[in-house]
Design a binder for these strands. Structure first.
Lengths: 218, 218
DNA sequence: CTATGTGAAGGTGTTCACAGCA
DNA sequence: TGCTGTGAACACCTTCACATAG
């Protein structure tokens, strides 16, 4: 019996990272039909890129016409699992952590922050947006009980690796790390994304001096 | 007369973005000598990658020995212009903006926040770390007088493009945009880096569901 | 006749393998 | 002998060009 591969060809990571931009463009525009050209314009990519990215997941468009905006948005949500209500826990309720909770509380984006924890007794119990800061010890039980799949690390650098280890052991599948430390994760099933403001700004400094290159968007 | 190109081969942007990670590893390690293998380990890249990246700028190492940590750090600082004291202005003193000012005040990284502006009269005048929030109208004069080369946008999405335009017209060479909007910049001399938390988290949601791929660090 | 879907071509970045030098 | 520096091989991603379908 032949195996019919639904998501056959390996999806490039770059494609995955562009999908959210398409999704935003689709929801912002107030139209029911859109071409790859227009969608590319709105999200900052070429029309071929848009078509190729979407084609990895199926033929969603109509030749000679374009894409049904509503339908395409729903498809992208499905692909990204955004219709599954992915839940995240924020570890570290400092400035960045609380700013993040409030930020995502407003702009949402279908990923829900379902918990905030901190190690500092002075911070535990404090209200942050719709959530109350819980003790770090509760991390594992929170992840288990609330079926959390994503961890967001905003603790000081020295605590980051330990938090990361606990998140991985507790079964989180994706980690967004804001601590200025490269995290080591052995489990290949866990995806780690680093966002390091200092590194980012230092890299930008290069472009301040050298007047070259166009703008990027990723 | 033959033109001797000092920085001849075009430097990949990816290389530039790894240099800050090397720099951090070099300053954290308390040694005066380091191999590409060790440096790679510490920053999360392969030894070949490290060597190739560094080789774009010259031969800083000693064969059979390794690199002089102190010297290499100084070279990277020079390449990234971090020894030139690059200055940045933060536009938008909301949650994210103030968190950012305080964050970089602590962890520094040789890029100095030299001003914070906001449009809200209720916020103007408020103290944020070592800075006082100034009115948005003063943006151009601040950039001119303090020789600012970098702009950091943390305003609500609807104001982002206008702020961006003003930054570009005022002569900023690099922009770090946290507003959830793709910015349009015509001037190819200006480098724009987007950091979009919502998009980032939506992309991560994909990896929560599909148990695949290793961790990334960029 | 228009805009999608896609093989093929092209470009860019990474890994390999080893020559070259301390 | 050990580790750097680097051309060549490779993998990955983007752009091109066009067949295809409405």
């Amino acid at each position: 019996m032949e195996r019919h591969e639904v998501r056959s060809r390996r999806i490039p990571e770059t494609t995955i990272r562009r999908l959210p931009a398409y999704l935003r463009a689709l929801t912002l525009i107030g139209q029911d039909r859109i071409t790859s050209e227009a969608l590319g314009q709105l999200s900052g990519y070429s029309s071929e890129q848009v078509r190729k990215d979407l084609a990895y997941f199926g033929a969603f468009g109509t030749r000679g016409v374009g894409y049904d905006a509503q339908l395409l948005a729903q498809e992208i949500r499905r692909i990204l699992q955004l219709d599954h209500g992915v839940r995240a826990v924020v570890v570290g309720a400092g400035r960045l952590g609380t700013a993040l909770v409030r930020h995502t509380g407003e702009t949402s984006g279908d990923v829900v922050i379902a918990g905030v924890v901190d190690i500092d007794p002075a911070v535990i119990g404090r209200q942050v947006d719709h959530l109350q800061v819980e003790p770090l010890e509760a991390l594992e039980s929170i992840i288990r009980e609330r079926q959390i799949g994503m961890g967001i690390i905003t603790v000081p650098p020295q605590g980051a690796q330990s938090v990361c280890d606990r998140l991985v052991r507790a079964g989180v599948r994706a980690i967004l790390n804001f601590a200025p430390r490269a995290l080591v994760v052995n489990n290949p099933e866990v995806f780690v994304q680093q966002i390091d403001l200092t590194l980012e700004m230092q890299a930008l400094a290069y472009f301040v001096g050298s007047s070259e290159r166009a703008h990027r968007r990723d």
